[in-house]
Amino acid sequence: MDTNPTVIRDATRVELAKDRGLIDDVIERILGLATEHGFDAGSAFAIRLAIEEAITNAFVHGHSTMPPDSTVTVDYRVSDRSVDVAVEDRGPGFDPERLPDPTEEENLSKPSGRGVMLMRAYMSEVVFNDSGNRVRLTYRREC
């Protein structure tokens, strides 16, 4: 199990329904812990953006063919050194390597396709599992 790079050891786990209040609660909980562990406002901005994109992707794209009450699993662990968050949907997954580059000229005026790119821009590490229905976001404190 530990060979799966998207698994976070000793994580706190939350099952999320598609409910804005519940999503905000878990994001605020993670950011509160990050602040307690000394992460600054710039870090919190980056972490919020990446988690938001991962959860939106899970519900909107991951669950596009799933029953509307399907839940998303969020695992998180915050330490002085890093914030780790894994988001898993119950859909069939996708291949993140096949996403078009949204910054290419021909894609610039397309209204979607920027979520994964923003996660990668703002996080230290973004890893998908083989089936592409689980992503682990890691934000490391700058040394």
Partner: peptide, 16 residues
């Protein structure tokens, strides 16, 4: 204070 890629998408649609 914060916006998401979905908000960027909405701005692009508005621009069109």
């Amino acid at each position: 204070d914060h916006l998401s890629s979905a908000a960027l998408g909405a701005l692009i649609t508005i621009n069109h």
